[in-house]
Design a protein around this nucleic acid. Structure first.
Lengths: 144, 144
DNA sequence: AACCTATAAATTGCGTACAATTTAATTATA
DNA sequence: TATAATTAAATTGTACGCAATTTATAGGTT
């Protein structure tokens, strides 16, 4: 019986592992900047959608973020406690919960603008590499 | 006062977000295959290191995986319960805990070889793109 | 109208992640 | 050599992620 080839089981030959490690490393780098505006990374990306969309359902928000209600419900309750969003059932269809940004939530945007500014300093890849990385990642996320 | 440019706060202009979303999507794709060998993704990458290294400290394992004892201690206790590894303090330095693969852990490797085989079918990017992705991610992880 | 099906959130339960602290062991230093 | 500083794991507490289930509402069928 021939020797099996187990190279595919080496960590260094995985594509998912550096993806997973890298995303956690960058989120770790965000932390000190996000602490200044009292948001976690997941809360931050949720607020990014709110700054653009102003109001939308939990389902729609989840489609943007690739997250489900199991993650979003407690997260949105925290954003509501902070006064950044409101949560109300839709009058037309009571199954839908509409998340709406508040004036406080809007105001936070002016502070948050400093986060990407500071993160840009941390970049360890060239602009063209960031562009290529972006293209490949979205090809994996949204294959058309 | 001039209009501020908030483009940097758009989700579509982030590099971290697709990284984060992509890593979770791929881990989700692993799940049915990992269920067959009763491992979570984090347990799977920990076992990958064990299959290569046979025995090492929690600290060394954490350096491979970019994880700390807060994550690894409970995870390794679960792998120990499954009989895949043993956990013992080092005789030379009692601060170190040596994680060792068991014969059962070694045996699991023969089953696990089917995981990357099946995952390869799911790839939605070209081989050269995977190579380039790999290079950029490791440049971010280990800037030399 | 009564019933069936589908859908959206919320809930439950498990397993990470990770910062911060604690405990125990080792090493360095006065 | 007593003590201070360092190190490795474990522990604690908070916040995700996500599968599976439940609850509530809406739409379709007879």
């Amino acid at each position: 019986m021939a020797q099996e080839n187990y190279d595919a089981l080496k960590l260094e030959n995985q594509i998912c592992f550096p993806l997973y490690a890298c995303s956690r490393e960058i989120i770790r780098q965000y932390k000190p900047f996000l602490d200044e505006i009292d948001l976690t990374y997941t809360q931050y990306i949720a607020m990014m959608v709110m700054w653009e969309r102003k109001a939308l359902t939990v389902k729609a928000l989840g489609e943007y973020l690739y997250l489900d209600s199991g993650t979003l419900t407690p997260l949105l309750k925290k954003l509501e406690q902070k006064g950044l969003v409101t949560r109300n059932r839709s009058r037309e269809d009571e199954r839908n919960l509409i998340v709406r940004i508040t004036p406080e939530g809007e105001a936070l945007k002016a502070q948050a603008i400093h986060v990407p500014e500071k993160m840009a300093q941390c970049a360890r890849i060239e602009p063209w590499e960031a562009t290529e990385l972006y293209r490949i990642l979205y090809k994996m996320l949204k294959p058309d």
